[in-house]
Design a protein around this nucleic acid. Sequence first.
DNA 1: ACCTGAACACCGTTCAAGT
DNA 2: ACCTGAACACCGTTCAAGT
Lengths: 216, 216
Amino acid sequence: MVVEKASTPKNGRPRAVTLDAILDAATELADDQGLDAVSFRALADRLGVSPMAIHRTTGGVDALQHALVSRIVGEVTRSVDWPEDWRGIVRLFADTLHDLLMRHPVILEAHRRASLVGPGADDVAYRVVAALRGAGLDEEAAAYAYGTLHDFVTGHVAIRLGRGDLELHHLPPERRAASVFADHHDYDRRFSFGLDLVIGGIAAAAATPASHEEQR
Amino acid sequence: MVVEKASTPKNGRPRAVTLDAILDAATELADDQGLDAVSFRALADRLGVSPMAIHRTTGGVDALQHALVSRIVGEVTRSVDWPEDWRGIVRLFADTLHDLLMRHPVILEAHRRASLVGPGADDVAYRVVAALRGAGLDEEAAAYAYGTLHDFVTGHVAIRLGRGDLELHHLPPERRAASVFADHHDYDRRFSFGLDLVIGGIAAAAATPASHEEQR
DNA sequence: ACCTGAACACCGTTCAAGT
DNA sequence: ACCTGAACACCGTTCAAGT
């Protein structure tokens, strides 16, 4: 079986531009200047081809954004050395997703148009759900608890990247001085505290398995 | 003190377009067709003026988006009848924020450009933090627990609106059948479960106040 | 004071023409 | 097969001109 070089199509003439090269440039541009800066014309300038070569190779702007997100999310899966206790697994998952989103803000911008799906993301999800079952949650609770972690981490990074200050710093000065938020606006602390809170909730739910059915 | 009618400037000629009318049209357009559909030309067509009248009145596209978000978020504060127990207050806050974001998806699209600040949002935050202190959290913990709730609700709605299916449904068919996620993808359930989890975590943290300091 | 309309520099996409 | 360049229908913004 002959593996054909990606940059050499059948007629022998070297391809002017590859999808990988486009995605590299697009990732850099998007994380640096925002998704709006990723135009076919801007990419074409960088890569020394015409805008239409980009358009044809990517298959349009929607396909480009989908490929962009999909490739980055694939990073989550790479060579993760999982700990043994469920708390460690949950923490590693949350930290890894957190770092990935912080490193590539473009995902949060594009994730409404291109879903957050990567080729290996499923394995990570399975691993986390298995850990949650090991903690004592039943199948349904483990699946939804994974969802809670996902929602929390995503929401945290979205808000963290959305603005430099907390959402309450537009208070009038006299109230700002009295605000409990003025002294507590460290995002790393906010993230680790929230993660501890969720982990504590998981432990509590595991201790009393039917608690979420009882209280109505 | 004479209160001037907003639609009648000093020279007596009726104003062709008011900021409120623009924001009404923009909210409708954005929630219906997405933020990209909100162009000055589209708004001008709806309101029967020139695009430049919109531009001048709003102060540019950034100011328009900021005003849009700010006005909608102001809804959170209106006539909330708070319960007495801290769990009820936390639930009402989370549900209210959840419903607001679901009703106006434009906020999630625009919140990177225009911060999530409303004139009355601070009062709501104060109320929730006070409830969390009542539950037994110290000042710092209450402030960050409010952040956790905010992050979770925002992230949940962002993911919920971002795609109709869960993030794991692109599995190959044979694995999809075995997936724990296939049977558990109800977003209302996911939200209420997650909220219960966070509330359980808050209760656990309140029972052992220094727990987040001990484990390192 | 407020609005208009032309102009400018962008954008994604279609399509006929080149090699 | 792959790329190009012109054309088309958009976009926000600037600015001189109207009333």
